[in-house]
Amino acid sequence: MSSSIASSSSSSSSSSKKEKKISLKTSDGEVFEVEEPVAMQLEIVRSFFADNEDVTEQTVMPLPNVSTAAMHGILEYCRAHEEFRRRMPEAAPEEEVRAFEAGYVDRKSNEELKEMILAANYLNISKLLDFLTGVAAKRIENKSVEYVRAFFGVENDFTPEEEANLRREYEWAFEGVDED
């Protein structure tokens, strides 16, 4: 469903030939030609173009902290939201947005999710960052400590005694936890 939105958006942009594109270069050297209203959702891009009047359409903006894979995910989200905005400028079609967002993250692994969180943070897209951190919180809700360590790639630096003490003291918090 999300891909159909993305393709319809690109077909509508090709029909209006004058639409301005902005070139963004990812950490692994790939250049993305992005429709201006979509690129402007990236706060870092918007302020780059607002602050530098001498940049031209030919300027390629480097984004050294964003991988190509993350960029695909980011653009898919921003294009879908631009499409929603274009169709219903007053109020977003909430149910459609929710359905899109649910399908959008279901396909992402935990590693992909974290990579996109980092990218959304760097690109300063607060709406997407808010959404993705919410998804991450949902994924670690009611999980075991081991699951959470693996999710975040955190090393346990407690001694076995310290950890056992914490577990004993807060025994009730370790009851009724989901299986990993």
């Binding site: 400590v145 360590r149 950890e163």
Partner: peptide, 14 residues
């Protein structure tokens, strides 16, 4: 965003 019970448990993460 997490409930208190989760936070208490995740004090043991590191």
């Amino acid at each position: 965003r997490l409930p208190v019970k989760d936070l208490i448990r995740y004090m043991s993460v590191c």
